[in-house]
C-alpha cells in the first residue's frame, strides 16, 4: 500500500467543503468590525474631548483589551456572559436561558470589543490630524458640533485612517480563526472537523492558510482602491461633463440677472 505523506490534491479539493463555513467567518468579521468602528469612534471622541469620568473608564478599557491576549478575552466573554445572566436570573427572578445564546454571539462580542480598543487609537489619531483652522471655519459658518463631525471631521479623517483600519481589519479576519475555541464553526473549525475525519491535519491547515491568504490579498486590494477613491488627485479635475455644462448655464443666468439688477 502506498503511503501518501502529503496529499497535495486534497489541499485544494477540500477547499469548497471548508468554504461552507465562510458565511460565519464573514458574519464575525463584519459585525465585529462595525462594533469596533462605532465603539472606537465613541472612545476616540471621549479621549479627544477629555470627557470627565468616561475618559478614565475608556483608558482602563483600552489598556485592558490591548494588554491581554484575544484568546483570553474570548474565554472571559464565553464564561463571563453566562455568569452575568445567571446573576440577573437570581436577583431579578427572570429566566433567561443561557443555552439559547448562539456561540457566535460570544465571539462577536469579544472580537468587537477587542477591535474597538485598537480602532479607537487609529480613529483618534486620524481625527486629530484634521487641522484646527477648518474646524474654526466651520464653526464660524454656524455649523453645529454634529454637522462639523459628520461633514468635516469624519470625511477627512476616514481618508487618513483607511490604511490603518485596513490593517486592523486584516488582523481581525485572522483573529476570527480563534472563534473555534468558543464552539463557533468558522473556517478554521470547519477545517479541523474535516481533518478530524480523515486525519489529514497538515492538509487541512494548508487549505486554511491558502483561504486566509487569498482573503487578505482581496481585502488589501479593496482598501487600496478605497484609498485611491478618496484621495484628491494632484491634478485639478477638468471642468467638463454634464455637471460643468449645467453650472455654466447657472452662472450665465446669475450674471444676466445681476446685469439686469444693476441696469435698473
Amino acid at each position: 500500500m502506498d503511503v501518501v505523506l502529503f496529499d497535495w490534491k486534497l489541499v485544494f479539493t477540500q477547499i469548497p467543503e471548508i468554504l461552507k463555513a465562510f458565511p460565519t467567518t464573514i458574519e464575525l468579521t463584519i459585525i465585529a468590525t462595525l462594533i469596533g468602528y462605532v465603539l472606537g469612534l465613541a472612545l476616540a471622541l471621549v479621549k479627544i474631548h477629555r470627557v470627565p469620568v468616561l475618559r478614565h473608564i475608556g483608558a482602563f478599557y483600552i489598556s485592558f483589551l490591548r494588554g491581554t491576549p484575544i484568546l483570553v478575552q474570548l474565554y472571559i466573554t464565553y464564561y463571563g456572559i453566562p455568569l452575568i445572566l445567571k446573576y440577573i436570573n437570581l436577583t431579578h427572578g427572570t429566566n433567561y436561558n443561557i443555552n439559547s445564546i448562539p456561540a457566535v454571539f460570544f465571539a462577536i462580542v469579544a472580537l468587537g470589543l477587542n477591535q474597538s480598543a485598537f480602532d479607537s487609537e487609529v480613529i483618534r489619531a486620524a481625527i486629530e490630524s484634521v487641522d484646527k483652522g477648518q474646524l474654526e471655519a466651520a464653526r464660524a459658518l454656524g455649523m453645529t458640533g454634529g454637522q462639523i463631525l459628520r461633514r468635516v471631521i469624519l470625511p477627512q479623517s476616514v481618508v487618513v485612517a483607511i490604511p490603518s483600519l485596513g490593517n486592523s481589519l486584516i488582523q481581525l479576519i485572522k483573529g476570527t480563526s480563534l472563534a473555534f475555541t468558543v464552539a463557533v464553526v468558522d473556517l478554521t473549525a470547519a477545517g479541523r472537523i474535516l481533518a478530524g475525519r480523515n486525519f489529514r491535519y497538515f492538509e487541512a491547515y494548508c487549505s486554511l492558510a491558502i483561504i486566509y491568504w487569498i482573503l487578505t490579498i482581496v481585502l488589501e486590494q479593496v482598501f487600496k482602491r478605497l484609498e485611491r477613491h478618496f484621495r484628491i488627485d494632484e491634478q485639478a479635475p477638468a471642468f467638463e461633463g454634464k455637471e460643468a455644462q449645467r453650472l455654466t448655464a447657472v452662472l450665465e443666468s446669475v450674471r444676466a440677472e445681476k446685469a439686469e439688477v444693476s441696469a435698473t
Binding site: 483652522g133 477648518q134 474654526e136 471655519a137 459658518l141 454637522q147 461633514r151 484628491i232
Partner: peptide, 24 residues
Amino acid sequence: VFQQFNLLKNRNTLENVTEGLITV
C-alpha cells in the same frame, strides 16, 4: 475670513461656498 484661508480640504471651490448655505 481667516489669515490661513481655512477652506475645507475635502470640498471643491463650489462646495466650499455652498456648504454653509445648505447645512446652516
